[in-house]
């Protein structure tokens, strides 16, 4: 693998962890528009602890994630009293406050940005991502996951059957913030340099968008969404150079690769929400994918065993 490809995989891994931060509250019917704020908290807390406390780096990222989860738990009780637009706006305001507050803390460099001494590569980040996926996949197969779906669809009904709706919503919100903080901490330890303005409202919006594009009814949805979001720009890389092979004159606007990426991504979201609002990975699609993987594994195993025979 080239270092460029490794870099892409790292970004994908981090995006997947963050995606579950948005996925969990959405699965409980709540939108957290302050994901970037929780990421920032996780990133800065882990970076500060890593630079000053002399703990093993792997511990510091979980401390960072813990801080994000703790903030979520503290604010969840008042904030989750609100619903719908009010909840979306309250979490949005919370995210803005966290970013603006960090901007004023000289201890972590304020607007200058903050350097992180420890570096994580794919070898550290990928296992954490896999563990995150495993945790969410497990939760999806318990009453916890079942009840979250029930709450998001019909809160009253779930409550009448004895589901502790508020507690579960707080749990989903807090666990989501924990994963967002974990993703932020990984981000800090991969890029080794963080600035408050990296964690703006637009980032929160992108995370919500790619999670919903992937789909929120299957644990695979956030992975697919994160993959599309991560790999889409690669298609548009050097668009002007590709075109110059066919045309003499290449217009300027073909060179705006990152803007094309976002424009296409946005168009994809709009079209998907119109035609297939449940996202790419429904449970049916997940089952089909699982069957396909099983088939591939069987073929592979078959080929290997037949190859080993002579």
């Amino acid at each position: 693998m080239t270092s460029y490809q490794t870099g892409l995989l790292v970004i994908l891994s981090i995006n997947i962890v963050i995606a579950y931060g948005a996925y969990l509250p959405i699965a409980a019917g709540q939108m957290n528009l302050g994901i970037a704020g929780f990421m920032a908290l996780g990133a800065y807390a882990s970076a500060y602890v890593a630079n000053n406390a002399g703990l093993p780096p792997i511990v510091t990222i979980f401390i960072g994630a813990g801080f994000a989860g703790l903030l979520a738990l503290i604010v969840a009780v008042p904030i989750l009293r609100t619903r719908g637009i009010y909840l979306a706006l309250a979490t949005f305001a919370l995210g803005q406050i966290v970013a603006a507050a960090i901007l004023n803390v000289e201890l972590v460099g304020a607007a200058e940005g903050y350097s992180v001494l420890d570096h994580f590569g794919l070898a550290t980040i990928a296992p954490i991502t896999i563990a995150t996926i495993a945790v969410v996949a497990y939760l999806n197969r318990t009453r916890f996951g079942l009840n979250l779906t029930a709450i998001s669809q019909d809160e009253l009904l779930a409550n009448l059957f004895g589901v502790r709706t508020r507690r579960l919503q707080i749990a989903a919100f807090t666990l989501g913030a924990f994963f967002a903080g974990l993703g932020g901490a990984l981000h800090a330890h991969y890029y080794n340099y963080i600035r408050p303005q990296d964690f703006n409202i637009l980032l929160s919006i992108y995370i919500i968008l790619f999670v919903l594009l992937g789909g929120t009814r299957s644990v695979l949805g956030p992975i697919v969404g994160a993959a599309i979001f991560t790999f889409l720009p690669e298609i548009f890389r050097d668009l002007d150079k590709k075109f110059s092979a066919f045309f003499d004159q290449v217009p300027d606007w073909l060179g705006q690769a990152s803007a094309w990426r976002f424009a296409i991504f946005a168009a994809l979201i709009i079209v998907f929400m119109m035609l297939r609002p449940q996202g790419i990975m429904t449970r049916g699609a997940t089952r089909a994918a699982a069957r396909w993987v099983a088939w591939c594994v069987r073929r592979l195993g078959f080929a290997r065993s037949s190859g080993a025979r002579p």
């Binding site: 497990y138 009453r143 009840n147 669809q153 009904l157 779930a158 059957f161 004895g162 589901v163």
Partner: peptide, 30 residues
């Protein structure tokens, strides 16, 4: 709950008997 299977909807009916945190995290489909 339209997005759940028939079996899962019925599992919801057992909620009250499933108990606290342990029941919540008991693997249903592993």
């Amino acid at each position: 709950i339209a997005h759940l299977t028939a079996l899962e909807n019925i599992l919801l009916g057992q909620q009250i008997r499933a108990g606290g945190l342990r029941g919540l995290l008991y693997p249903l489909n592993v």
